[in-house]
């Protein structure tokens, strides 16, 4: 464990807790893409299949349980909670996210480190995580504005992946044989997807005005 990875995990934890808190407190999920949340639930489900078979540390298992629990809770709130579900703008959140999953699955079947059931699904979860934010970014473009909690959510999510890139660089220089191109490239693509959002987020923060994403 290094400080970059810890910072990344804490930022990631903060992002899901900020979102869960928002939805639980104000009983609204306006501006949040259910598609992205469903994709994240699938990412965690396919990423943590080994939670019962391989034990890394208490921290690792605890965090996996928190991420699984929070992502499925968010999906549950948005789909089934009597009050929250009414605030979900389903006609705006129309990104066909199943079309994201198929290419990720095909790519995982083609490019992976080992051709085993767990490894292919784990690789699938990496590719899917890289693109899972797309429905949310498309929704923000459509709704043209962003309330600050959703903005914080995306900002923290991007920050978590940015810290992980620093973690990979650190591990590359400190651990022999630590070379994982698939993880690195997927993580880099994911962070780049956030880059333009960060740019507009920073502009709005600098000019101290409401975040307006270009059409």
């Amino acid at each position: 464990m290094n400080i970059f990875r810890l910072a990344g995990d804490m930022t990631h934890l903060a992002s899901v807790l900020v979102l869960l808190l928002k939805i639980h407190t104000i009983k609204s999920c306006a501006g949040v893409s259910l598609k992205t949340q469903e994709l994240y639930a699938i990412v965690f489900a396919t990423r943590y299949l080994d939670i019962l078979t391989s034990f890394v540390s208490i921290y690792n298992t605890l965090m996996k349980l928190i991420f699984l629990g929070s992502s499925f809770s968010i999906v549950w709130y948005m789909k089934y909670h009597k009050t929250v579900r009414r605030t979900y703008d389903r006609d705006q959140d129309t990104f066909r996210h199943w079309f994201l999953m198929l290419p990720c699955l095909l790519l995982a079947l083609l490019i992976h480190e080992k051709f085993t059931f767990f490894e292919v699904l784990w690789t699938f979860s990496l590719y899917l995580e890289a693109v899972a934010i797309l429905p949310q970014l498309v929704l923000l473009q459509r709704t043209r504005n962003i309330d600050n909690l959703t903005g914080q959510y995306i900002f923290l999510l991007g920050g978590y992946r940015g810290f992980y890139i620093l973690n990979w660089i650190y591990r590359y220089f400190t651990e022999p044989h630590y070379v994982h191109w698939i993880t690195w490239i997927a993580g880099l693509v994911q962070t780049l997807l956030y880059a333009d959002f960060f740019y507009y987020y920073f502009l709005s923060w600098k000019n101290n005005k409401k975040l307006q994403l270009p059409a």
Binding site: R5, R47, D50, V56, N60, Y164, R171, P176
Partner: peptide, 10 residues
């Protein structure tokens, strides 16, 4: 030892 893995990462 066995090659390092990213499976210890979340």
């Amino acid at each position: 030892g066995e090659e390092s893995s990213t499976k210890d990462e979340l």
